[in-house]
Simulated assay, not measured.
Amino acid sequence: MSQRIKRFLFLCLMSLGVLTSNVSAEGIKIKSFELEKVENDWLLNATFQIELSPDLEDAVQKGVVLYFQTEFDLTRSRWYWFDEKPALAQRQTRLSYQPLTQQYRIASEGFTFSAKTISEALQAVGSIGGWRVIDNTQLDPSKSYTAALRMTLDLTKLPKPFQVNALNNRDWNVSSDWYRFPFVSNGPNQIKR
Protein backbone atom coordinates (compact mmCIF):
# COMPACT_ATOMS: atom_id res chain seq x y z
CA MET A 1 0.00 0.00 0.00
CA SER A 2 1.33 3.41 -0.89
CA GLN A 3 1.81 6.21 1.63
CA ARG A 4 -0.95 8.27 -0.04
CA ILE A 5 -3.51 5.53 0.35
CA LYS A 6 -2.52 4.97 3.98
CA ARG A 7 -2.79 8.69 4.69
CA PHE A 8 -6.14 8.87 2.92
CA LEU A 9 -7.51 5.91 4.90
CA PHE A 10 -6.19 7.41 8.15
CA LEU A 11 -7.89 10.75 7.42
CA CYS A 12 -11.14 9.00 6.51
CA LEU A 13 -11.11 7.02 9.75
CA MET A 14 -10.31 10.12 11.78
CA SER A 15 -13.14 12.11 10.19
CA LEU A 16 -15.50 9.19 10.73
CA GLY A 17 -14.50 9.12 14.41
CA VAL A 18 -15.19 12.87 14.71
CA LEU A 19 -18.58 12.50 13.04
CA THR A 20 -19.66 9.59 15.21
CA SER A 21 -18.55 11.34 18.38
CA ASN A 22 -20.67 14.37 17.44
CA VAL A 23 -23.69 12.21 16.68
CA SER A 24 -23.40 10.22 19.89
CA ALA A 25 -23.17 13.42 21.95
CA GLU A 26 -26.80 14.22 21.12
CA GLY A 27 -29.61 12.14 22.48
CA ILE A 28 -30.88 10.91 25.83
CA LYS A 29 -28.89 8.99 28.41
CA ILE A 30 -29.96 7.65 31.81
CA LYS A 31 -27.70 9.24 34.42
CA SER A 32 -29.28 7.81 37.57
CA PHE A 33 -32.38 6.12 38.86
CA GLU A 34 -33.74 4.94 42.17
CA LEU A 35 -36.65 2.59 42.72
CA GLU A 36 -37.86 2.75 46.32
CA LYS A 37 -40.73 1.17 48.19
CA VAL A 38 -43.02 3.61 49.98
CA GLU A 39 -45.87 1.91 51.84
CA ASN A 40 -47.56 -0.27 49.20
CA ASP A 41 -46.10 1.40 46.10
CA TRP A 42 -42.78 1.50 44.29
CA LEU A 43 -41.73 5.03 43.30
CA LEU A 44 -39.22 5.88 40.60
CA ASN A 45 -36.78 8.78 40.83
CA ALA A 46 -34.66 9.19 37.70
CA THR A 47 -32.39 11.66 35.96
CA PHE A 48 -31.88 11.71 32.20
CA GLN A 49 -29.29 13.73 30.33
CA ILE A 50 -30.96 15.22 27.25
CA GLU A 51 -28.99 16.86 24.45
CA LEU A 52 -30.86 18.14 21.40
CA SER A 53 -29.46 18.83 17.98
CA PRO A 54 -29.25 22.48 16.88
CA ASP A 55 -32.18 21.85 14.50
CA LEU A 56 -34.42 20.68 17.35
CA GLU A 57 -33.39 23.59 19.60
CA ASP A 58 -34.16 25.99 16.76
CA ALA A 59 -37.55 24.34 16.18
CA VAL A 60 -38.47 24.76 19.86
CA GLN A 61 -37.48 28.44 19.76
CA LYS A 62 -39.72 28.88 16.71
CA GLY A 63 -42.78 27.47 18.47
CA VAL A 64 -42.67 23.70 17.94
CA VAL A 65 -43.76 21.87 21.08
CA LEU A 66 -41.76 18.74 21.96
CA TYR A 67 -43.27 15.85 23.90
CA PHE A 68 -40.98 13.46 25.76
CA GLN A 69 -42.37 10.02 26.63
CA THR A 70 -40.92 8.14 29.61
CA GLU A 71 -41.77 4.45 29.78
CA PHE A 72 -41.36 1.95 32.59
CA ASP A 73 -42.37 -1.68 32.35
CA LEU A 74 -42.03 -4.74 34.51
CA THR A 75 -41.99 -8.20 32.92
CA ARG A 76 -41.68 -11.76 34.10
CA SER A 77 -40.41 -14.36 31.66
CA ARG A 78 -42.48 -17.50 31.19
CA TRP A 79 -41.22 -20.44 29.15
CA TYR A 80 -44.71 -21.70 28.32
CA TRP A 81 -46.38 -18.47 27.19
CA PHE A 82 -45.77 -14.82 26.41
CA ASP A 83 -44.00 -12.76 29.06
CA GLU A 84 -46.24 -11.47 31.84
CA LYS A 85 -46.36 -7.65 32.21
CA PRO A 86 -47.75 -6.83 35.65
CA ALA A 87 -46.81 -3.14 35.47
CA LEU A 88 -46.58 -0.65 32.62
CA ALA A 89 -46.36 3.09 33.25
CA GLN A 90 -46.00 5.97 30.80
CA ARG A 91 -45.46 9.62 31.49
CA GLN A 92 -45.42 12.53 29.07
CA THR A 93 -43.53 15.79 29.52
CA ARG A 94 -44.19 18.80 27.29
CA LEU A 95 -41.49 21.35 26.39
CA SER A 96 -42.43 24.64 24.74
CA TYR A 97 -41.01 28.14 24.34
CA GLN A 98 -42.95 31.32 25.16
CA PRO A 99 -41.50 34.17 23.07
CA LEU A 100 -43.40 36.87 24.98
CA THR A 101 -41.77 35.99 28.31
CA GLN A 102 -38.66 34.47 26.67
CA GLN A 103 -38.96 31.40 28.86
CA TYR A 104 -39.25 27.69 28.29
CA ARG A 105 -42.29 25.95 29.78
CA ILE A 106 -42.20 22.38 30.99
CA ALA A 107 -45.50 20.64 31.79
CA SER A 108 -45.88 17.14 33.22
CA GLU A 109 -48.74 15.48 35.09
CA GLY A 110 -50.46 18.75 35.95
CA PHE A 111 -47.32 20.57 37.09
CA THR A 112 -45.70 23.37 35.10
CA PHE A 113 -42.23 24.86 35.41
CA SER A 114 -40.45 27.75 33.74
CA ALA A 115 -36.80 27.94 32.73
CA LYS A 116 -34.72 30.74 31.26
CA THR A 117 -32.37 28.62 29.14
CA ILE A 118 -32.75 25.49 27.05
CA SER A 119 -30.23 23.64 29.22
CA GLU A 120 -32.28 24.38 32.38
CA ALA A 121 -35.42 23.30 30.56
CA LEU A 122 -33.88 20.01 29.40
CA GLN A 123 -32.62 19.36 32.92
CA ALA A 124 -36.18 19.82 34.23
CA VAL A 125 -37.58 17.53 31.51
CA GLY A 126 -35.01 14.87 32.44
CA SER A 127 -35.75 14.95 36.18
CA ILE A 128 -38.42 12.56 37.46
CA GLY A 129 -39.25 12.32 41.12
CA GLY A 130 -41.77 10.24 43.06
CA TRP A 131 -43.39 8.64 40.00
CA ARG A 132 -45.58 5.71 41.11
CA VAL A 133 -44.75 2.88 38.73
CA ILE A 134 -45.66 -0.32 40.62
CA ASP A 135 -48.44 -1.23 43.01
CA ASN A 136 -47.08 -3.96 45.29
CA THR A 137 -50.36 -5.90 45.02
CA GLN A 138 -49.51 -6.57 41.35
CA LEU A 139 -46.42 -8.55 42.32
CA ASP A 140 -45.80 -12.10 43.48
CA PRO A 141 -43.07 -11.97 46.17
CA SER A 142 -41.76 -15.42 45.21
CA LYS A 143 -41.03 -14.43 41.60
CA SER A 144 -38.29 -12.35 40.03
CA TYR A 145 -38.96 -9.72 37.39
CA THR A 146 -37.12 -7.56 34.90
CA ALA A 147 -37.73 -3.82 35.03
CA ALA A 148 -37.02 -1.54 32.06
CA LEU A 149 -36.84 2.22 31.67
CA ARG A 150 -36.38 4.61 28.75
CA MET A 151 -37.22 8.11 27.47
CA THR A 152 -37.97 9.12 23.88
CA LEU A 153 -39.03 12.16 21.91
CA ASP A 154 -42.60 11.37 20.83
CA LEU A 155 -42.57 12.09 17.11
CA THR A 156 -46.30 11.37 16.71
CA LYS A 157 -47.14 14.55 18.67
CA LEU A 158 -45.20 16.80 16.30
CA PRO A 159 -47.07 18.82 13.64
CA LYS A 160 -47.44 16.78 10.43
CA PRO A 161 -44.77 18.62 8.38
CA PHE A 162 -42.24 17.99 11.17
CA GLN A 163 -43.21 14.33 11.35
CA VAL A 164 -42.24 13.97 7.69
CA ASN A 165 -38.98 15.79 8.40
CA ALA A 166 -38.33 13.49 11.37
CA LEU A 167 -38.61 10.42 9.13
CA ASN A 168 -35.86 11.78 6.89
CA ASN A 169 -33.61 13.28 9.57
CA ARG A 170 -31.88 11.22 12.28
CA ASP A 171 -31.34 14.34 14.42
CA TRP A 172 -35.07 14.30 15.22
CA ASN A 173 -35.05 10.69 16.47
CA VAL A 174 -33.99 11.32 20.06
CA SER A 175 -34.25 8.35 22.38
CA SER A 176 -32.43 6.59 25.18
CA ASP A 177 -31.72 2.90 25.09
CA TRP A 178 -33.83 0.63 27.26
CA TYR A 179 -32.14 0.15 30.61
CA ARG A 180 -33.06 -3.26 32.00
CA PHE A 181 -32.34 -4.52 35.50
CA PRO A 182 -33.48 -7.42 37.71
CA PHE A 183 -36.20 -6.68 40.25
CA VAL A 184 -37.40 -8.74 43.23
CA SER A 185 -40.31 -7.29 45.21
CA ASN A 186 -39.30 -8.78 48.56
CA GLY A 187 -35.65 -7.79 48.12
CA PRO A 188 -33.99 -4.61 49.33
CA ASN A 189 -36.21 -1.53 49.50
CA GLN A 190 -34.00 0.49 47.20
CA ILE A 191 -32.47 -0.18 43.82
CA LYS A 192 -30.02 2.47 42.68
CA ARG A 193 -27.86 3.09 39.69
Results as ranks from 00 to 15, higher is better:
residue 127 S to P: 05
residue 120 E to M: 07
residue 94 R to N: 01
residue 8 F to N: 05
residue 58 D to V: 02
residue 174 V to S: 01
residue 89 A to T: 08
residue 171 D to L: 07
residue 93 T to C: 14
residue 40 N to D: 08
residue 33 F to M: 10
residue 53 S to N: 07
residue 128 I to W: 10
residue 25 A to C: 03
residue 87 A to C: 13
residue 97 Y to M: 03
residue 10 F to V: 10
residue 169 N to K: 08
residue 161 P to D: 09
residue 89 A to D: 03
residue 106 I to T: 07
residue 61 Q to L: 13
residue 87 A to D: 14
residue 166 A to I: 15
residue 172 W to R: 04
residue 84 E to L: 08
residue 113 F to C: 12
residue 87 A to N: 12
residue 168 N to V: 07
residue 125 V to E: 01
residue 66 L to D: 02
residue 192 K to R: 13
residue 58 D to E: 07
residue 35 L to N: 03
residue 25 A to G: 05
residue 54 P to W: 06
residue 88 L to P: 06
residue 111 F to G: 11
residue 157 K to S: 01
residue 55 D to K: 06
residue 165 N to E: 13
residue 114 S to C: 08
residue 21 S to I: 14
residue 21 S to M: 11
residue 31 K to G: 02
residue 51 E to L: 10
residue 56 L to I: 01
residue 164 V to K: 03
residue 103 Q to C: 09
residue 92 Q to P: 02
residue 145 Y to W: 08
residue 11 L to V: 12
residue 83 D to M: 09
residue 26 E to P: 01
residue 78 R to G: 13
residue 175 S to F: 08
residue 96 S to M: 00
residue 65 V to H: 00
residue 132 R to G: 06
residue 162 F to G: 00
residue 70 T to S: 13
residue 63 G to D: 00
residue 151 M to W: 08
residue 114 S to K: 06
residue 108 S to M: 15
residue 82 F to Y: 12
residue 120 E to F: 03
residue 187 G to V: 11
residue 12 C to D: 11
residue 122 L to I: 07
residue 73 D to R: 04
residue 82 F to T: 06
residue 181 F to C: 09
residue 7 R to S: 10
residue 140 D to L: 08
residue 126 G to W: 04
